[in-house]
Structure formats: structure tokens, C-alpha cells
Design a protein around this nucleic acid. Sequence first.
DNA 1: GAATTTCGTTGGTTGCGCCAATGTTTATGG
DNA 2: CCATAAACATTGGCGCAACCAACGAAATTC
Lengths: 151, 151
Amino acid sequence: MERAEDPIPHRLRVLPSRLVNQVATSANRLVDQALAGPGLRRYHYSLLAALEEFGPASQAALGRRTGIDRSDIVATVNELAERGLVERSPDPDDRRRNVITVTPAGVRQLAELDRLLSGAQDELLAALTRAEREQLIGLLTRVADHHGAPQ
Amino acid sequence: MERAEDPIPHRLRVLPSRLVNQVATSANRLVDQALAGPGLRRYHYSLLAALEEFGPASQAALGRRTGIDRSDIVATVNELAERGLVERSPDPDDRRRNVITVTPAGVRQLAELDRLLSGAQDELLAALTRAEREQLIGLLTRVADHHGAPQ
DNA sequence: GAATTTCGTTGGTTGCGCCAATGTTTATGG
DNA sequence: CCATAAACATTGGCGCAACCAACGAAATTC
């Protein structure tokens, strides 16, 4: 028979940490689908966004601004550079640093990603009214801010 | 100087999918810390919760109830069985199945986990009032329910 | 000038969420 | 009744995010 839709344990159903993870999983599924078109991942978007908003930056600065680990920045920049979306050049003023710059193609790509991601957000929050979305965003922001930087 | 606290790109700061991921990451950090005492992980809690609420079950049923993949159930049950928290025995009525049963030690462990997790939830939502927590849970539940089973 | 810090990089690890394939057992339907 | 299909446990794999340690090179600080 097994017609019964396999109930989820009550404990899990109402556990906030689990609820938030379920929503995050849905969010990631939608976002990953959206980014799959251009063949990119969330890390790529984060980096492009940071570059476009704050201009050329060192890899370390990009890491601090996006919360991505330095070591993961390396690979992500490599991939963006391979696609011609950013350029990596040594900083003449500080020879430890690389300066990462968005290319015009990168700016165009970012605009496209913004469009795709906006659609994903709408899908994610489709069950909520405009006001409820604002409410949710507000509450999440407060929780996120309260915990701040990891560790 | 670097006194400036490295601003997060606005795009990322307000992107709902990203907000939800930040909160989920905080949640997981807190929950993982809480479970680290007993040396368990989230999968273990999910399985114990499902077993205690619905009684002995096959591994496939556990998977359906918790959303954990069948293949991951195997390892998780192994680990719980090693610790004497569950028992795996062949189902005499259906020799394809194993029946997983919580032991008394498992029940006690689950009670302890409930206590630990409750603390983690409080920490997670510390920035919100009781009413706001209810609100957040309600909104997240609606979003989660709207997307339902993955794929 | 020596010690410390920053930076890029390499090379890991872990957990979660998946998927494919295999052998066994049960159910189905022709 | 037998062949085919489905369900089950298991193995082994993958990708992604999020980490950590260590290293050489370069800059900063003491």
C-alpha cells in the first residue's frame, strides 16, 4: 500500500535549525539550477558581486568580503579567469598581492546572473506575499547579524 | 589599518537565498557543536527521532521519513549500532528488510540530544523575541512546505 | 636588522546531499 | 506458474560548501 506519504518526525518538522536547512537546500537547488546555464557556481557569483561593488581587490580582501576561504578564492578566481570574466595581475605596490579585476565580459555576465538569481528568489519565496517576504528577510537578517563572522 | 570591517556586498547581504544559507550555517555550527559532546552528527539525531516516534522500521522507511538517502542510512545505522543505540535485525516477514530498533540506551541518548539541541536553538534565535521566533518558524514552514519533497 | 604578519598557493578533511549499480528477495501480471 | 518488475540493503562514487595546516615570498613592525 504505502499510500501514506511517510510522515516526518514531529521533532524534525518543527526544529528551527532543520527548517532553515530545508529552506536553504531548496534555495541552493533553485540557485544552482539558475547558475547552471552559464556553468557557474555560487562562489563565482559572490566574487563577481564583490568585485563589481568595491572594484579591483586582492584575493585576501575578496575572501574577507565574501566569507570565502582564501584557499577557495584561488580556485574560484582561476575558473573566472579561464572564462575571461576576471583578470589576475600582480600588484606593483605590494608584490605579495594579486589584483583581481572584472572584465567587461564579467560585468555583462554578472548582470545576467542577477537576472537569473532574481528569478530563483521569486521561486523560492513564491508561497509568501511581498510583506511576508520582507518580514522573513528582516528576521533572517537579524539572526544572521547576531551571529556575525564565523568563529 | 584595515580597521574597516570589510563590508559585505549589498547584493549578497539582501539575497534571500544567501541569508537563509548564512543562518543555516550558523545553525549547523551550533547544532554540530552540541552534538559533538556525544560524538554524534545530525543524521544520527534524525534517525533516532524517527525511530522513537514511529517505532522500529526498515532502513528504507527511515530514509523516506527523514529525507536521508538509503545509502547514507546504511552508514548512519552502522554507527548508531556500534554505539549500542540501535539494533539491526533481519525482518522475518520480509527477508529483504532489516528492522532497526532503538535500544533503551538509544532512548536515553535521544533525550540528551533533545536537551542539547534545544539549547542550540535558543542560541540560534537569541536575537528574536518569542513572538518573532514563532513568526520565523511559520514563514520558513510555509516556504519549506511549498517546495515539498526534493524533485 | 630580526621577528612577525600578510598573501597566494597547495593539499588536504568533513558533512550533507546526491546517483548508479549489484545481489537478494518479494510482488505482479501474463 | 513463471517471467518480469519492484523493493531492499549495500558498495562506491560524485560535487559542493566550508573549513584547516603549512609553505615560501614579500611587506610590516619592533
